[in-house]
C-alpha cells in the first residue's frame, strides 16, 4: 500500500488504533460473509454492503458519547456493528430468522435498537434525514444534551426533503450532525452525472449550516472531524454537515454488475486508500503490534463472524403467527 501523508506520525494510542482495526475488520469480514450467504441463497432481496466505507462509522462512533443517537439509510450493517449491536442478531435478520433484531420481519434495510440508540435502517432514500432531525428535536425538547448522527449518501443529498430539513434544523438549532457519506456513486450514477455542484459540504451554507469535508478512508481524520462537529452541536450551535469522502468497493446491491466504473478504479482504491490497511500500517510502523498480534485479531474476528453466520443459519424462521404481530403497539 502506498504511504499516505502523516501515516507514520500518529499520536493515537495503541489501544485506540487496535480498537479501530478490530471494528473496521469486523464490518469488512461480516459484510464479506453476508455476501457469501447471499450467494448461497440464505439472504434474499436487497443487500447493500458497506465494504470500503468502514472508517466512516468507526471514526464517528469514536466521537460519540453514550446516549447519542444515530440513523441511516439501507446500507446499514456497518452502522449497527459499529454502535455495538450484536452481529448474530444482525446476521439472523439478514437471513430472515426469528433470532434477527427485527424477528426476521425487517430484513437488511430495517433494523433498530433502542438500547444502542440506533433508529434504523431506512429503505427510502433521504427519508432518514428529517427523521434524524426529529430525533434531535426530541433531544432538544427534553434538554438532555444528546446529539444525533443522521447519515445519508451523495445520492440522497439531492432529495428535496433534505433541504426542507436543513432549513428547519438550522431555524430551530437542532443538535444534529448531517453525515454525507459520499461514495461517489448514487447507485450506478457517478456524482458528476447527478449533481450540479460537487462540494456537498457547502450545501448547508444557504441555511447557515457550517460544513466540512473529510477523508473517509482515514479513520483518525474522521474521528477528529466528528469530535469537532459533536462539540459544535452539543454547544447548542445547531446542525453541522460532515461530508465524508469514501468509496464502496462492492456494487450498490448484490445484483449490481458494476458497469459504470472500471475494475481498475476499484482496485486502485483498494490498493492505495484502504482504511483498514491504513490502520494496519500505523500499528506495524509504530511498533504497536506485530503481524502475529494482528493475525490473532483476524482470527478472533473470523470466529465472531462465523458464529454469527452459524446462528443466522440455525435460528428458525419466524413462527407463522408472527405475520400478525407488531402491527399495532
Amino acid at each position: 500500500m502506498a504511504a499516505r501523508k502523516g501515516a507514520a506520525k500518529s499520536n493515537t494510542s495503541r489501544e485506540e488504533l487496535l480498537s479501530y482495526y478490530r471494528e473496521m475488520l469486523l464490518i469488512r469480514r461480516f459484510e464479506e460473509k453476508a455476501g457469501q450467504l447471499y450467494g448461497m441463497g440464505l439472504i434474499g432481496g436487497f443487500c447493500h454492503l458497506y465494504i470500503g466505507q468502514e472508517a466512516v462509522v468507526v471514526g464517528l462512533e469514536a466521537a460519540a458519547e453514550e446516549g447519542d443517537k444515530r440513523i441511516t439509510s439501507y446500507r446499514d450493517h456497518g452502522h449497527m456493528l459499529a454502535c455495538g449491536m450484536d452481529p448474530k442478531g444482525v446476521m439472523a435478520e439478514l437471513t430472515g430468522r426469528e433470532g434477527g433484531l427485527s424477528k426476521g420481519k425487517g430484513g437488511s434495510m430495517h433494523m433498530f435498537s433502542k438500547e444502542k440508540h440506533f433508529y434504523g435502517g431506512h429503505g427510502i432514500v433521504g427519508a432518514q434525514v428529517p427523521l434524524g432531525a426529529g430525533l434531535a428535536f426530541a433531544d432538544k425538547y427534553k434538554g438532555n444534551g444528546r446529539v444525533t448522527f443522521a447519515y445519508f449518501g451523495d445520492g440522497a443529498a439531492n432529495q428535496g426533503q433534505v433541504y426542507e430539513t436543513f432549513n428547519m434544523a438550522a431555524l430551530w438549532k437542532l443538535p444534529v450532525i448531517f453525515v454525507i457519506e459520499n461514495n461517489q456513486y448514487a447507485m450506478g450514477t457517478a456524482q458528476k452525472r447527478s449533481t450540479s455542484t460537487p462540494e456537498l459540504h457547502t450545501r448547508g451554507l444557504a441555511f447557515g449550516i457550517a460544513g466540512e469535508t473529510v477523508d473517509g478512508m482515514d479513520v483518525l481524520a474522521v474521528k477528529a472531524a466528528g469530535e469537532k462537529a459533536v462539540a459544535a452541536c452539543r454547544a447548542g450551535n445547531g446542525p453541522y454537515i460532515l461530508e465524508v469522502m469514501t468509496y464502496r468497493y462492492r456494487g450498490h446491491s448484490m445484483s449490481d454488475p458494476a458497469k459504470y466504473r472500471t475494475r481498475e478504479e476499484v482496485q486502485k482504491m483498494r490498493d492505495e486508500r484502504d482504511a483498514i490497511e491504513h490502520v494496519r500500517e500505523l500499528l506495524i510502523q509504530g511498533k504497536h503490534a506485530t503481524e502475529d498480534d494482528l493475525k490473532a485479531i483476524d482470527k478472533d474476528i473470523k470466529a465472531i463472524v462465523n458464529e454469527a453466520a452459524e446462528f443466522s443459519k440455525e435460528s428458525p424462521e419466524p413462527a407463522l403467527s408472527e405475520l400478525w404481530t407488531d402491527i399495532y403497539a
Binding site: 433508529y119 428529517p130 434524524g132 432531525a133 426529529g134 426530541a138 428547519m168
Partner: peptide, 12 residues
C-alpha cells in the same frame, strides 16, 4: 420535512 421531523421525534 416537518412530518418527517415529527415522526422522528415520536420514535424518540
Amino acid at each position: 420535512g416537518f412530518a418527517g421531523i415529527a415522526v422522528g421525534s415520536a420514535m424518540a
